[in-house]
Design a protein around this nucleic acid. Structure first.
Lengths: 298, 298
DNA sequence: TATGATATGCTCAAAGAGAGCATAATTAGG
DNA sequence: CCTAATTATGCTCTCTTTGAGCATATCATA
């Protein structure tokens, strides 16, 4: 059984939420995700990556999970004589640490159609129009393409599904609506990135949006103590949706994910809000229990 | 930015269900998962793996998804001067294709504590006893270990959670109760495998158990037409649990995942059962919609 | 024809989710 | 001090979903 050789690198999707905006750590003025060599010195990939990120960003990484391994032949930075394997990771950084410094870009810059907090974004009209003509361009696959577009973008009666971020990007890629797919820069939707980095970012977004619903990982993005509204806004930022306030509190409280610190915060111009902290013991009690999303129609 | 070099291989967890038993494709008389070189000739990893598997097993792979990439330094087959990267995949094979031929082993051979279809397996008593003494052996981490054992094995009031297969294996590994961790073969629970292959299998099982609940992937394991009981038994085999029959039908039917073929089957010695087939169009309609698990106390 | 077995239909209660009304506790402005 | 605006927090009500189990249908077999 022979074993192939390959170049290996690590790519990180580092996420923080500041000012109700989800941000991702980038290099090259927002054009690429940070990546680095596959270090031989560390015992595990995770520990190696953790150290490396700490070094690069000067911020501790709270949560780290493997995203996906990309190794397709037609990825950009190929080197003759060997393929490049990119192992991507998703990391969550505490709000206070990973603040508004340069390098952190709001992720809706790259995916403007993913933010539905102010209602359905206007870009979607353009997107659907262009997807329609793409679908019609191939009579054989026409129907299938229309159904796929309708479903992924929530026009099939099922409504918008925030978890489909990756599928949406892939569809736009196939339809040639993003410049990474080779279309001209004028035709590009959202902000483009180097090689397939925007696809990796979409993978991270989709994974995180799915994860917050069944694992209490949001707290890795929060400061030690926070108000329930702050927590809600953070989740809304990630999901790109607004939540029903009262039901959100009900869910959080009945799951006993948090406990009162005793303090309050009165910065927001209304009745002061109680401060809460994450009950770290829930991680042992039941590794399950995420944060369900009580949607709202606002 | 330097780029590291590494050896790369692919490892497959191929699953089929025959005779109400979930099976996994193995080599070396059940001691290892099939693995092969990282081929340079293919455009994508998936297509390469797909061809390779087809070649090896002579069965088409219905569904294929990447599982995890392992690259820790202390994995067995290390070669001086370079680390080995193993990219693992989960593949589902149709019942009829991947039948009882040699090489296919029931996966509960390796994880006897995971099958709760006949009630709580007796091994669990031994397991818990040994986990208790492991926990007590370290006074500092005692409480934490007890809570973790209770939670993972369903003694904390939350009950047994079939999705935690990987966490359970990892706990047993840490506790030195599996021979892969270096304990003697006499101390080993379940059947051991080469290197970290049992861990990879556990990863596949956990992923599949979780997946069937939100994506209609079970059908990849079924023949073209089947009775609802057959479908139920297949899911029960994977989950290691029994389901409530009437509620199971209700779920399947209300989700419109299947449609009647018109035929019936009267093999089972009772009233003949209607035959159904998977409505492939649901994959376009809504990529969501899995098969929820209406548990039962039987 | 009676019995056993599986298939299939239906009901009922408890738990969960979606929406919205009502009250409380502040700050800003007259 | 009084009022409006603003956010926090408590509670209710309805509709759905889920868990359980009873009842009936349709076959094979003794």
């Amino acid at each position: 059984m022979t074993i192939g050789f390959a170049h290996a690198e690590l790519i990180a999707v580092l996420v923080a939420v500041t000012g109700d905006e989800p941000r991702v750590m980038t290099i090259r003025s927002g054009n690429a995700l940070p990546s680095g060599p596959f270090e031989m010195g560390h015992r595990t990939l995770q520990s190696g990556l953790r150290e490396w990120v700490q070094e690069q960003t000067e911020h501790p990484v709270g949560y780290l999970e493997q995203l996906y391994t990309f190794a397709d032949r037609d990825r950009n930075n190929d080197i003759p004589g060997g393929r490049t394997i990119s192992i991507s990771y998703l990391g969550l950084v505490n709000e206070q640490s990973g603040a508004g410094r340069p390098g952190w870009h709001g992720w809706y810059e790259y995916f403007p159609w993913e933010d539905h907090r102010q209602g359905r974004p206007a870009v979607l009209d353009e997107i659907m129009a262009r997807l329609r003509s793409w679908a019609d361009a191939d009579p054989a696959r026409r129907d299938h393409r229309h159904r796929r577009a309708d479903f992924t973008f929530g026009l099939d009666g099922g409504g918008w599904n925030e978890d489909l971020a990756l599928q949406r990007y892939e569809l736009l890629y196939e339809a040639g609506l993003v410049s990474e797919a080779g279309c001209g820069a004028e035709a590009n939707l959202g902000r483009a990135m180097f090689a397939d980095h925007r696809r990796i970012l979409a993978t991270g977004i989709a994974r995180l949006r799915a994860k917050i619903k069944y694992r209490p990982v949001v707290f890795e993005l929060m400061p030690e103590s926070f108000t329930l509204l702050r927590l809600q806004r953070t989740i809304e930022a990630l999901a790109g949706l607004t939540l029903h306030k009262q039901n959100f509190r009900r869910l959080i409280e009945q799951q006993e994910l948090v406990e009162e610190t005793g303090g309050t915060e009165s910065e927001t111009g209304g009745r002061p809000a109680k401060l809460f902290r994450f009950r770290h013991t829930v991680l042992e009690e039941r590794a399950l229990a995420g944060t369900k999303l009580p949607l709202s129609r606002n």
